[in-house]
Computed example of a mutant assay.
Amino acid sequence: MPEDAGAPRRQARGRARIEQILLAAAAVFGEVGYEAATTNAIAARAGISPGSLYQFFANKDEVGRALAEAYAERLATLELLGGLTPENLDRVLDDALARIVGFSIEHPGFKALFARTDMPPSMRAAVAPAHDAIEARVREAIAAIMPDADDRRIATMATVILSMVKGLMPLIVAEADAPQRRLLVIELHRGIVAYVSSARGDVA
């Protein structure tokens, strides 16, 4: 059977269309939230018909899952909390928060899929791998500076820290005034450092 010379071109067009849809979905999710978003709105933002969208995704949940997977892959490239020690806590945490804020601003749909605690049941499984990866990184960082803490204490602390980040991140990202945004990040940083320092004192 002769090889289809046009197949690679069609595949490239398909990948480009998927990326177009995901970029549109990120914008729509970021503006109106996941629940209020519709496939019609995503298609309109992408400049295509709903029928064209359905050639690649059966429904909004499939779009959301694909976007969550794309975010998870990009998050994996971020260096967060590596080499943390009690002595460099301020610097490493400041760098990690700056990277997360930058990522959230660059990817407007991120907060709609990740920076919340009431994720719709249909999306929990989709975002779980990225959540788990971030939580594992936070646990590793805590264990590095609190080697005497048991697993339950470390897990609880990771949950508290991530909840602090999730709680403030939407406000930080939505803040248009750069100095005010930086102040919010500073207060988040201060809260995490105070919490970790207090916990280290309890374990010591």
Rank of each mutant, 00 (worst) to 15 (best):
D118S: 15
S122P: 14
R139N: 01
P147D: 06
D94V: 01
A98I: 12
I100E: 04
V101D: 02
R152W: 14
P147G: 09
A115Y: 05
A141I: 14
H107P: 06
A125E: 09
A126V: 00
E87A: 10
A98W: 09
I100D: 01
E135W: 09
F103G: 00
A149C: 09
A158T: 02
V101Q: 00
R152M: 12
L89P: 00
F110Q: 00
S104H: 08
E87C: 05
A96D: 00
T117R: 11
M119K: 02
A130E: 06
D150E: 06
M146C: 11
V160G: 02
V92Q: 02
P121I: 08
P86M: 07
T117F: 11
E106G: 12
A136E: 15
R139G: 00
A141T: 15
I145E: 04
R152Q: 13
T156F: 15
A144G: 06
V127I: 14
D118T: 15
D90E: 11
V127S: 09
A125Y: 01
R116C: 11
P147W: 10
D150Q: 06
K111T: 13
A155C: 15
P86N: 07
I100M: 08
G102M: 03
L89S: 04
D148Y: 15
R99E: 15
A136I: 11
D151P: 03
A149P: 01
R91C: 09
D118W: 10
G109D: 07
D132C: 02
N88T: 01
N88F: 04
L113F: 09
L93I: 03
L93R: 02
V160H: 07
T159A: 05
M146D: 06
I105G: 02
D95R: 10
I105C: 06
A128M: 11
A149K: 05
F103V: 05
R91F: 13
A155P: 12
I134F: 15
D132Q: 10
V160R: 04
D132I: 03
T117G: 09
D148F: 15
R137I: 13
D90C: 00
A96R: 03
A96P: 02
I100A: 04
D94A: 05
M146T: 08
M157P: 02
V160P: 07
